[in-house]
Computed example of a mutant assay.
Amino acid sequence: MSHALSLFVTGTDTEIGKTLVSAALLRGFVREGLRATAMKPIAAGATLVDGVLHNEDADQLDDAANVLLPPDIRTPFMLKEPAAPHIAAAHENVMLDMTRIVDAHMQALDMADVVVVEGVGGFRVPLTDAHDTADLAFALNLPVVLVVGMRLGCISHALLTAEAIVARGLRIAGWVANRVDPAMLFPDENIDTLRTWLDRQYDAPLLGVVPHLSPASPDVAATHLDTNRLLQTLRAAQR
């Protein structure tokens, strides 16, 4: 049985920095001397490069990892259309089978010390007519890191997502504030509010505040994250 650590990264929405934070966590784990790898089980939006389908997010995760998985384990479902996964899958006559993802994750655990699994879109994005990303996180049974895109409206989005995570019986290992909107009014006050609510209601610590980075840099973002605290939480959850 593998003793590798693993976590599921979700977000308050799409385009709020899940990939940046996932890559930053990978860089942090590598700095800690761990063999770190990533899964992007479902990637929507892929292009052919030299006859091989590539997804920008999946490639960024590979760049940040120091253990590379075979493409069909890292991303069991690579969809061409940049659309909601169930729509892209239907368009390509693909059935998004969670069993295949769970099996791939089991294989990934045997290849590294820590596996970062990045979700697709927000936490409740449908994958089929009957299942969504929350069901995938539940099937994998992983602690969740919540990425909050700091912009107007983020407090409600963050608390709704946290409520949905806990309602599935999953643990929030921590959350990350990502400054996606550099012009946001009162960002520190918003972060303080979320810190109070998420810590009090869900025992979910703030793992760090990622400043607005242009261009985005996982190495720079990693310096703003408390990877060590997250590792302690993951190890405690495994006991």
Rank of each mutant, 00 (worst) to 15 (best):
M1F: 11
M1R: 01
S2L: 00
S2P: 11
H3M: 09
A4M: 11
L5A: 08
L5T: 09
F8P: 12
F8T: 05
F8C: 12
T12F: 15
D13Y: 13
D13F: 14
I16P: 05
G17I: 08
L20K: 06
S22E: 00
A23E: 07
L25P: 04
L25H: 11
L26R: 02
L26D: 06
R27Y: 09
G28S: 15
R31F: 04
L34G: 04
T37Y: 10
T37Q: 05
M39F: 08
K40P: 00
I42W: 03
A43H: 00
A46W: 10
L48I: 14
L53S: 04
N55M: 02
D57Q: 08
Q60M: 15
Q60F: 03
Q60A: 15
D62E: 06
D63V: 06
D63S: 14
N66P: 10
L68Q: 14
P70E: 03
I73M: 09
R74I: 00
T75C: 15
P76V: 10
P76C: 15
F77A: 02
F77D: 06
K80Q: 15
P82N: 10
P82W: 01
P85V: 11
P85D: 13
A89M: 08
A89W: 01
A89C: 04
E92Y: 10
M95R: 04
D97W: 05
D97C: 06
T99H: 13
I101E: 01
I101S: 02
Q107V: 10
V116K: 13
E118M: 14
G119P: 00
G119V: 04
V120R: 05
G121F: 15
G122D: 12
F123R: 06
R124F: 03
V125E: 09
P126M: 02
L127V: 09
T128Y: 12
D129N: 05
A134E: 03
L136E: 00
A137T: 12
A137P: 04
A139V: 09
P143F: 02
V145L: 11
V145F: 07
V147T: 10
V148A: 01
G149I: 07
G153H: 12
C154A: 11
C154I: 13
I155P: 13
S156W: 10
A158Y: 06
L160Q: 08
T161W: 03
A162L: 12
A164H: 03
I165L: 11
I165C: 01
G169I: 03
G169Q: 09
R171P: 03
I172L: 14
A173M: 01
W175R: 10
V176A: 09
A177P: 10
D181G: 05
D181P: 03
D181N: 07
L185W: 13
L185S: 12
P187E: 13
D188G: 13
N190R: 12
N190K: 06
N190E: 03
I191T: 00
D192P: 02
T193R: 05
L194N: 09
L198F: 07
L198K: 10
Q201Y: 04
Q201G: 00
A204F: 01
P205N: 05
P211R: 05
P211V: 13
P211Y: 07
H212D: 01
L213R: 11
A216F: 08
A216E: 11
S217R: 08
V220F: 14
V220H: 13
A221N: 06
H224T: 10
R229T: 07
L231D: 08
L234I: 09
